[in-house]
Design a protein around this nucleic acid. Structure first.
Length: 228
DNA sequence: CCAGACGTTGTT
DNA sequence: GTCTGG
DNA sequence: CCAGACGTTGTT
DNA sequence: GTCTGG
């Protein structure tokens, strides 16, 4: 699945994702966790692409009291069209979440061992997401999003049975297009990202604590005997 | 019809 | 908004 | 995702 | 065990 990710590089991010003027602060992030603000790319109908901050963990616009409702951080690609929470968002609330890597954990007894998965060449990639705006009692809108998950490619399957839906660069515009993809096309867009572009290595247990945020988190850690 | 919920993950 | 349960 | 808390009352 | 917070 996808419960933590990174944006280790911010130089060139607006250009890479077709955003002319990015109004949100772009800082390197080494441990992005649910509930945190994250830069998200949208393409409003009849306008240009935008990059805005949204909170990770979806609060549907119809939510009455989000305090005590689930805020899904992931949505299964296989069942998007049959989930009442996600289906209404498929037509006009698709978004891209820029990233340079993500973490997956392997449970080992009482502890969880983190692995870092990223592009071999260090490129950005775009996670496929859905967002919504919820009107708070104060009248302000809270924008939130969820990351779509899909089957793992063989590389990620060594660590987990799910992985985030990473879009092929040539498909990113289609995902944002106001012409909603058919179910068939959605399935294709959200298929597992090819493993040959990715690599993975074990990292420090320091990643487990979302308070830890420094660049050393993504360094290789020769800690043990678990899978590469 | 209306009322009420609406998620994923991993673990047992 | 849409689906499920009663 | 993992880590950490998990309560109420009355008083300052 | 389960919920909340980051």
């Amino acid at each position: 699945m996808c419960g933590r990710f990174t944006i280790t590089v911010t130089i060139g991010l607006p250009e890479r994702f077709g955003v002319a003027h990015c109004k949100v602060p772009l800082l390197p992030r080494y441990n992005i966790a649910p509930s945190q603000p994250v830069p998200v790319i949208t393409h409003p109908f009849g306008s240009i692409r935008e990059c805005q901050e949204m909170t990770w963990g979806l609060i549907p616009s119809t939510s009455k009291d989000p305090t005590h409702s689930p805020r899904p951080i992931n949505a299964r690609a296989e069942t998007l069209h049959e989930r009442s929470t996600f289906r209404p968002l498929l037509s006009s609330r698709r978004c891209l979440i820029p990233a340079t890597g993500f973490y997956e954990w392997v449970r080992s007894g009482k502890s969880s061992i983190p692995y870092y998965i990223h592009c071999k060449n260090g490129d950005f990639f775009a996670l496929a997401g859905l967002w919504d705006a919820w009107k708070a009692p104060d009248g302000l809108f809270r924008k939130t999003f969820t990351i779509i998950t899909t089957r793992p490619n063989p590389l990620v399957a060594r660590y987990h049975d799910r992985m985030p839906a990473i879009l092929l660069p040539e498909n990113e515009a289609r995902w944002l297009d106001f012409m909603t993809p058919s179910n068939k096309e959605l399935k294709e867009l959200l298929s597992p990202y090819p493993e040959e572009y990715l690599t993975a290595h074990r990292v420090s247990l320091a990643v487990n604590d979302p308070m830890h945020e420094d660049a050393s988190l993504i360094k290789r850690d020769e800690g043990g005997v678990l899978p590469v």
